[in-house]
Write a protein that binds this DNA or RNA. Structure first.
Lengths: 108, 108
DNA sequence: ATAAAATATGAACATATACTAATATATGCA
DNA sequence: TGCATATATTAGTATATGTTCATATTTTAT
């Protein structure tokens, strides 16, 4: 036996529950068209909630809900300016995956 | 104006419906713990349906349903040997994303 | 042709998810 | 304080999703 009780999860037959949860949550975040559109919008610059709402033709409520979802997963962050909140992306790894997959899907 | 009517989707404010569908479907496939476990299992070698079922303690029916899902997205393929079907992964890009994200999640 | 083994399918069910309308909260300013 | 603007939250609803049981299909061997 070696001194490492457990090898990296990737080498095991099965994954532990916590890893499974985090990974599935992360991908779930990218598994919805609305959230993809929002993240894609935030690729280049920050947007206010209303900015997103108007640009993507989504209800303010819908945008706010999805931003909370993304915020909980730390995929976006915001800064305040008066009553306005400016959201921007906050996870390079996820944004890279998204970019790659979009490029991959765009019948290159 | 230039001769390219449309730049790559990634540079536009919004994505077209088809791209949105493909991308969200791809991530949706990775957004479920059961499918993640199956794909993770298929990382190293092929497995029969029953093999997956027994290894992951899942009903045969559940595995079969999820494999169909993954097959429709061309994330897995199979070869036949008698009455047994051996499944293996069929999308390097997706498997790489999965590996990266698992490693990323495993509090490295 | 019939039976056995492996896998696929269909229907039913419970839960999760996303959107909406209505309302609440928070901030800045007169 | 009172009002306007921006955002968040709550509750309700419709749809999507994942699992299970039962059954059908497919393939091989006898």
């Amino acid at each position: 036996m070696e001194d490492n009780k457990e090898r990296a999860e990737i080498d095991n037959k099965d994954l532990d529950e916590e890893t499974l949860f985090v990974v599935s949550q992360t991908f779930k975040a990218l598994g919805d068209p609305t959230r993809i559109r929002i993240l894609n919008l935030l690729f280049h610059k920050e947007f206010s909630v209303n900015g997103i709402s108007e640009t993507l033709h989504l209800r303010q409520s819908t945008v706010s809900h999805q931003l909370r979802f993304l915020k909980n997963l730390r995929l976006v962050k915001y800064r305040r300016e008066g009553t306005t909140l400016y959201y921007s992306h906050d996870d390079e790894h996820v944004m890279n995956m998204l970019r790659q997959t979009i490029e991959h899907a765009c019948h290159n």
